[in-house]
């Protein structure tokens, strides 16, 4: 008998009242992986923890592609800083996530000068009023200012006029 034939597929098990719909179970799993919800019953906790970490590492890599200066400025602690910030926070897209992280670091006085330069450039080129809404390109000439860093945007081109002061 061909073991892979559909005839060999067992029928659905009797309905278990504790098992809810696939939609609800997928939602509970994603919430546990990215939003700090408790792990759904029955899953191996170590495997879920490893998955959670792998998802954070992947997000860190994607964010670093949009925010290479921020990531470089935080080297060698980039992964650690990003994972600490992102743990339990659902993914919002790499551009927004770097933006939120940079803002938070700025408020805490921990934004490295390279990150300030990069945030100023993004601010000059894009309008990002609030989390949850995607940044939009600015149509009119505009500028961004973060700490000592100043960037201007004209006709879609962004130029860093002054870098943030490098700590010595």
């Amino acid at each position: 008998m061909n073991p892979a034939s559909p005839a060999n597929v067992p029928a659905t098990r009797p309905t278990d009242p504790t098992v809810t719909t696939l939609a609800a179970r997928q939602a509970a799993l994603v919430a546990a992986l990215v939003a700090g919800a408790p792990p759904p019953p029955g899953f191996a906790p170590e495997a879920l923890a490893a998955t959670r970490t792998a998802l954070l590492r992947k997000r860190a890599g994607e964010t670093a592609r949009y925010w290479p200066l921020l990531a470089t400025g935080l080297h060698p602690r980039w992964l650690e800083v990003f994972q600490h910030w992102a743990a339990g926070r659902p993914p919002a897209g790499a551009l927004c996530e770097g933006w939120e992280l940079a803002r938070q670091l700025q408020r805490a006085g921990e934004l490295p000068p390279l990150g300030a330069d990069e945030l100023a450039c993004w601010q000059a080129g894009y309008h990002y009023p609030e989390p949850g809404r995607p940044p939009r390109p600015r149509r009119l000439p505009s500028w961004g200012r973060v700490g000592g860093a100043v960037a201007i945007q004209f006709a879609g081109r962004v130029r860093l006029l002054r870098s943030a002061r490098r700590r010595t």
Binding site: A27, A28, V30, A31, V34, L55, E62, P90, P91
Partner: peptide, 9 residues
């Protein structure tokens, strides 16, 4: 994604 959340992978 599920339940309004993106898993990211």
């Amino acid at each position: 994604r599920a339940g309004g959340l993106e898993a990211g992978h």
